[in-house]
Simulated assay, not measured.
Amino acid sequence: MEELKLNNKGFTLIELLIAMLIVLIVMLGLLKGILEYNKFSIRAKMKDKATEIAKQFTAYIESLPYVSDGSGIQSILYANNSSWNNVICNSTSCSFFESETDFYNIGSPTGTNPIDGLSSKLRLYPSSNNVNAQCSCSGSNCPSTLPVCTYEGFSGKKIYLAVNIARIIDDYGRETGKAASVMVWYFEPFTNTLKQMTSVVIKEKR
Rank of each mutant, 00 (worst) to 15 (best):
V26S: 10
I168T: 08
P147M: 00
K5H: 13
S140E: 12
R206C: 10
V201T: 12
I18Q: 06
I61E: 04
A166T: 01
A50E: 05
D69T: 07
L64I: 02
M197S: 13
D69S: 08
S199R: 13
D116M: 09
L4H: 07
G156C: 10
I169K: 10
T101F: 13
I106G: 05
Y66E: 02
R43K: 14
C135W: 05
L118V: 07
N141C: 03
T191L: 11
N8V: 11
Y186G: 03
S140L: 10
E152M: 11
I73N: 00
W185D: 02
S71A: 12
L122D: 01
M27R: 00
E175P: 10
V200A: 07
T145I: 12
T191R: 12
F97N: 14
E2T: 14
L35T: 07
D116G: 15
N141I: 01
L24T: 15
A179C: 07
S127N: 11
V26W: 05
L64Y: 00
D102S: 15
Q196L: 15
Y60G: 02
V184N: 11
S68W: 02
T176E: 05
N80H: 12
I18G: 04
G177V: 08
T12Q: 02
L64F: 01
A133V: 05
N192H: 05
E3L: 14
L64R: 00
S128P: 07
I165N: 00
A166Q: 01
C135A: 15
F40A: 15
E36L: 08
Q74V: 01
T92S: 15
N141S: 09
L28R: 04
L6R: 14
I61F: 02
L16M: 14
G177D: 05
A54L: 13
L118Q: 08
I18K: 07
A59W: 08
A54T: 02
L35H: 02
I14A: 13
T51S: 14
N38F: 08
V148S: 04
V87L: 10
K9A: 10
T58V: 11
N132M: 05
E100K: 09
T191H: 09
Y37T: 15
P109F: 13
